Amino acid sequence: MAADKSTKKLPTGVRKKSENSYEVRVKHDGKTYYAYASTITEAKKKRVDLKYQLTHGTYIKPASYTFGQWFEFWMENYKENSVKRGTCVTYWNYYNASVKERFGDVKLDKIHGEDIQMFYNELVKKGSRSATIKVIKAFMSGAFKQAVKNGIIARNPFDATNFPTKTKAEKKRKAMTKEEQALFMEYAKESYLYNLFAVMLRTGMRCGEIRGLRWGDIDKKEHVIHVRRTLKYINGEGYVADAPKTKTSFRDIPLTQDLIGLLDNQKNYWNFKVEKIDRYLFCNVDGDPLDSQAVQVEINRIINRIRAAGNEFERITPHVFRHTFATRALEAGMEPQILKAILGHSSIAMTMDLYSHVLPDSKAEEMKKIVSVF
């Protein structure tokens, strides 16, 4: 039997490569075949599996997988039944847009840490946002991690990389000032999406979440809005209801009297028949799901009217309404922990990281309170 440096005996055909890496060797028809594992127990199982595959002719040579082939196999067998449908769609979209051309035809065992690091740098040079690069890292590293578990490759190339920090060109989270907010809503009064904009500013809901609201989600008895779904676009199917972004995105938002008035107005806006009472609350004139692009088009139209009147106004996206709500909430003294729950963030650290820039003035005011103690 082989032995590691601590003199602990290892099973036949298993050799320790590093602290958490074991090499499995099986001889068959005069050739030696290899697999890799992170524990002795896993190595023993992989050796049994490898021997079985070689004996029964089901062995697939690891190097025969390109990243594209493995990614497709990984998505179908490991992801489609374990993550949201919308997440799978997002992974495929990013793969086709940014990864396929670069790594799709490259063998798994030929992709090294330096290749991934150069890919990071290429994405940064192209102007990709940190959030975009994080998504790409998530699914690529996940696919490689599974390949390591399956003994197809020895190590995950992402382990030898450094994730790029935010570039100087990457702007801080944009939020409207109080003056901009008031100006926008003044010019939005005649818009068919006025109620949507007003509710977003009062709840911080994501655009997909508010477009996925149904009247049944408005719970006047408990005085909350139940956030239970988001709208996701699926090629060939259009907009479909999907689970919210994360587990903490399932949440209840307090229902104020102001919100009740806006939501009641929206319920009756299109004068739909009773049979469509469970339609999406914010929809188009036919009662169909509201397109995210239609929201952006309406925002642009309102901004053009503001500019035509001689006012300066930067371009904004629907997500700016969420940031504006969070900014106003902190300015008004809302506790970050409460804001985290309303926004549906997964951690208080995320909330503070995104909105800590709002707090300097608040911190100064809080420090003044301690003066009376001395």
Rank of each mutant, 00 (worst) to 15 (best):
S21T: 15
T132P: 06
T41F: 05
S141P: 00
L263P: 01
R322W: 08
N235L: 12
M140V: 11
Q296N: 12
S292L: 10
G216K: 11
I342M: 12
V297E: 14
T41V: 13
T177E: 06
S347R: 05
L196K: 01
T58A: 10
D4E: 12
V124E: 12
Y355I: 07
E180V: 09
E114P: 00
V89L: 11
H323P: 09
D4S: 04
H28D: 14
K369L: 13
A143H: 05
D49Q: 14
Q293M: 05
M1V: 03
K369W: 06
Y33E: 05
N93E: 12
G142Q: 07
G212L: 09
N195I: 00
K221D: 15
F158M: 10
L10W: 01
A169V: 09
Y280T: 05
Y95T: 04
V199F: 04
Y65H: 14
P164D: 03
Q296L: 14
G142F: 05
Q53G: 07
S21P: 02
K232F: 08
K16P: 02
I234C: 04
K267W: 07
E335Y: 09
V48Q: 01
H112R: 14
A35D: 07
N304G: 00
D291P: 00
K340A: 11
I277M: 08
K368E: 15
I136W: 03
P244H: 08
K126R: 15
F325T: 04
F313Q: 01
E179D: 15
G57L: 08
K45C: 00
S347T: 15
I234G: 05
S292D: 15
T351I: 05
E114N: 13
K137Q: 15
L54I: 06
K84P: 02
K245R: 08
K168Y: 02
D159G: 01
D105R: 10
A97D: 13
D288V: 02
R315L: 14
Y36W: 15
A131L: 05
L255F: 06
C88W: 00
L193D: 00
L330D: 09
Y52I: 13
K9D: 00
T324Q: 07
M185L: 15
F282C: 07
N77K: 11
E114V: 10
E170I: 02
D105T: 11
I306A: 09
I116W: 01
T256F: 04
I260N: 00
W70R: 02
C207W: 01
A188L: 11
L213E: 08
G208F: 09
P157G: 06
T351R: 03
G204D: 06
H319T: 10
S356R: 04
D4M: 06
P244E: 05
S82V: 09
M185W: 03
A188R: 05
L359G: 05
E331R: 03
E72C: 01
E275S: 14
A143P: 02
M75S: 10
V48C: 00
V24Y: 03
E114K: 13
G261A: 12
A138L: 14
P318R: 03
A341Q: 14
K368T: 14
L196C: 12
M140P: 06
V358W: 04
G142N: 10
S64H: 02
P164E: 03
I133H: 06
